[in-house]
Amino acid sequence: MSSERLDIRTSDDVVRVRQLTRTLALKAGLSLVDQTKVITAASELARNTLDYGGGGFVLAELIEGAGRHGVRLTFEDQGPGIQDVEVAMKDGFTSGKGMGLGLGGARRLSNEFFIHSKPGEGTKVTIARWK
């Protein structure tokens, strides 16, 4: 299975994450709407990695299971972490000047969503979208 790691250090890298996600989503055979959803979720998470995590990377993988393909993205940073993940997940919660839609939106736009964060250590978010 193909996988690719991409550093997220600048807002150009966020564009690259979107492009990489599109390439994988096409390979996985996702419908146009599902491609759009997973690219949008990737864009939200990549921006969070950059803006709040102080930069990090994404691991993008083409996955296979039960006869179908999908895309899995794991965003990781070693930034300040999230104090209360449950609160951060709520729509409308932002510690910056966003709209607080990124995390909740990414969860709704994905079939699988995992988040792990520890204050002082960093944040890891994994999403998957299946065909």
Partner: peptide, 10 residues
């Protein structure tokens, strides 16, 4: 597809 996604994004 963008309109559908926007609504789901919130």
């Amino acid at each position: 597809a963008v309109a559908i996604t926007l609504v789901e994004l919130g």
